[in-house]
Design a binder for these strands. Structure first.
Lengths: 149, 149
DNA sequence: ACTAATTCTATAAAGCCAGTAGAGATTATC
DNA sequence: GATAATCTCTACTGGCTTTATAGAATTAGT
């Protein structure tokens, strides 16, 4: 399960990608239209700002706007910023690799092998899907449907 | 990230799958060989017992044994028992479906679409891989390697 | 019946997550 | 400059999860 914060962050970024370039959206507007608790959303946007994904203008008529094109913000980036590693095991993480202290040999660990297979397609989707894709409704890739049968 | 409990549960089940049929393994033995805190392992085995995956014999010379063949215990079953839903969003869960209260329309939700694509291959691996596969080192399926390139 | 071994039950400590509260800083507008 | 709107920052709370511990209940063997 991804955290609620991560889901809110994705929704907020999609909302920001839809405002006219040059303008800014305010926390309270996003909170209302996306049904996100306002004070909670403030914290989330702040984290996104500190990560360099969005920029802000303070004061009256301030607000938030994307700092990068929506097509360059991937789901993986957002999830890693908010929830931390995407990998199911520390020994499979890219951004926070850690050896399992209780594991005899990482390269023969059968549990690791199984989850290595699990995480690989997940990463492919999350690294390739951007906020722009989601905003445009391009989330489903028809080429991938056949394997679902 | 899966919980430590889930990883320990998988390792314990693999260990149990390796003892001679009819006999039982004791918590302390598994704890030692698998480097799992003993008292913590007791709770995990108890949960697996209440789920009907293993059976126990109490008292002196007691212990645990698998209740079902290792080839019929999937990774997905274990993860659901210990960690709960595998799905990244409540609205994509099989065992604990819940509508997102803050979601306008589930079937057009772009975030849901992306994660639907993410969870599908994950489920395929976890539902098809069994404790017996892991114990035998059959965790990697060679047919799946080409798509990793 | 006693003892040692073992599972089982209940509870505790620490940390994480979701959400709330409020004071302070910055800006546009009048 | 005063005011109102907005972002920024810190702290806090309640509930849940994770990890772990202490002790009660049960059993085999003598």
């Amino acid at each position: 399960m991804i955290s609620r914060q991560a889901k809110y962050a994705l929704r907020a970024l999609i909302a920001l990608s839809r405002i006219t370039p040059g303008s800014a959206a305010q926390t309270s507007d996003i909170a209302t239209t996306e049904k996100i608790p306002k004070k909670f959303l403030e914290q989330i946007l702040l984290r996104l700002k500190n990560q360099g994904m969005v920029q802000s203008r303070r004061g009256n008529r301030g607000g938030y706007a994307l700092l990068k094109p929506a097509s360059e913000i991937t789901f993986a980036q957002v999830l890693r910023t908010i929830d931390g590693p995407i990998a199911p095991l520390p020994c499979l993480s890219i951004i926070a690799y850690a050896r399992c202290e209780d594991c005899k040999d990482e390269f023969t660990c059968e549990i690791r092998k199984v989850f290595a297979r699990v995480i690989e397609p997940t990463r492919q989707v999350l690294e390739r899907t951007t906020i722009a894709d989601a905003a445009a409704g391009r989330a489903i890739d028809l080429e991938s449907l056949p394997q679902m049968a």
